[in-house]
């Protein structure tokens, strides 16, 4: 990637598709996949999708440059966004730029975290964001392009270049894109954003620096208590960063599991309290050296086990996915926060 950021426009030779693919690879602009050329016209159309959003952005670490709406739009174009996606991309970006998200730490770490973005509200349907079957997977342009645009912005304007600034030991597939919608229509609970103070008719993007989803398979349990017992066991692992109980995690309930929990009168609050109490890692699973580290950092075991969440409120409950007896656990980087930002609709 060029360190010269002084030129807002670049005049480059005419080139065919293959030439362009080689060019962006040489520039270090790509996540590895081909990019759409950010021509003046396509970028102008993208910017029109955020018409009226004049709130300035802070500098993006580690390069510490302030983005312009135009350079942000260029990355959204390259990612394959429609202009209608752009407000969601900007909301996700504003979220990761909130100090508590700890963008610098999440970009430079050896951990495999990626910026997860969950969308709530009417925008999910307007943009055809997949909230149901295969919602963490491939096949939906909005899911793919919104998450990808955020990552390209962090790469190209932020400077989070893999193997230079991004020191992740393994990385993860979620670093290409990690965007989904809450399945509000099949959730027995209030939508996530409404529980967090937003109106139901507002669209909200919630970001968290996260590992990809870990599957919570439970075909056998027939009660809410049975399901939560299984989930607590799945979450209680000594190898996720949650072992330090420094940050949030998401539990994304599949609609069938959510229905069973609601039938048995499990509220979101009760689910949080149960998992906070029961998801503990026994001392026998943790090396003496690590026990000493955690205690030195002020994290002490209770009843011969370490909790994995700082408080019940750090356990974020949502509903997504389609039919099947599966839920998902999404552990965070640890030193991060779940940040919700209202999507600004374009001015009329």
């Amino acid at each position: 990637m060029s360190d010269s950021a002084e030129t807002e426009y670049l005049d480059i030779p005419e080139m065919d598709h293959d030439g362009w693919a080689d060019y962006v690879e040489a520039q270090g602009w790509t996540d590895g996949l081909p990019l759409v050329p950010p021509t003046e016209a396509s970028v102008a159309r993208m910017m029109d999708g955020a018409r009226g959003d004049n709130e300035p952005f802070p500098a993006i670490t580690p390069r510490l440059l302030i983005p312009t709406l135009r350079s942000l739009a260029a990355n959204a174009v390259m990612a394959g966004c429609r202009p209608s996606y752009f407000p969601a991309v900007l909301a996700a970006l504003r979220g990761v730029l909130v100090a508590d998200y700890n963008l610098h730490g999440t970009l430079a770490t050896t951990h495999s975290c990626a910026p997860m973005a969950m969308v709530n509200g009417p925008l999910r349907q307007e943009l055809n964001i997949n909230c149901g079957t295969n919602c963490f997977g491939q096949g939906w342009r909005a899911n793919a392009a919104i998450g990808r645009a955020l990552q390209l912005i962090l790469l190209n304007i932020g400077g989070g270049k893999p193997a230079v600034m991004d020191r992740s030991t393994f990385g993860s597939p979620a670093k290409y894109t990690f965007c989904f919608g809450e399945n509000e229509e099949e959730s027995p609970f209030e939508p996530y954003h409404v529980r967090n103070g937003f109106r139901a008719d507002e669209s909200v993007v919630t970001v968290m620096s996260a590992e990809p989803n870990h599957n919570l398979n439970d075909h056998g349990s027939t009660t809410g208590l049975g399901l939560l017992t299984t989930f607590a066991g799945g979450i209680a692992t000594p190898t996720a960063n949650t072992i330090s109980a420094k940050g949030p995690y998401f539990i994304v309930l599949g609609p069938e599991h959510a229905a069973t929990l609601a039938r048995d009168n499990w509220t979101v609050k009760k689910i949080q309290d149960f998992l906070y109490d029961k998801a503990r890692v026994p001392l026998a699973w943790i090396s003496k050296e690590n026990q000493a580290r955690y205690e030195e950092a002020g994290h002490f075991p209770e009843n011969d086990a370490f909790r994995v969440a700082p408080t019940p409120d750090d356990i974020h409950v949502a509903v997504a996915g389609g039919p099947g007896k599966h839920s998902a656990w999404i552990p965070s980087f640890g030193g991060t926060a779940a940040i919700s930002i209202r999507v600004k609709p374009p001015a009329a």
Binding site: D3, T61, P62, R63, L64, A108, G159, K161, A163, V164, M165, R167
Partner: peptide, 14 residues
Amino acid sequence: ETFRPLVLAQAKAR
């Protein structure tokens, strides 16, 4: 040595 590029990149930005 593995983190040398990270240090240099951050220092350059600052």
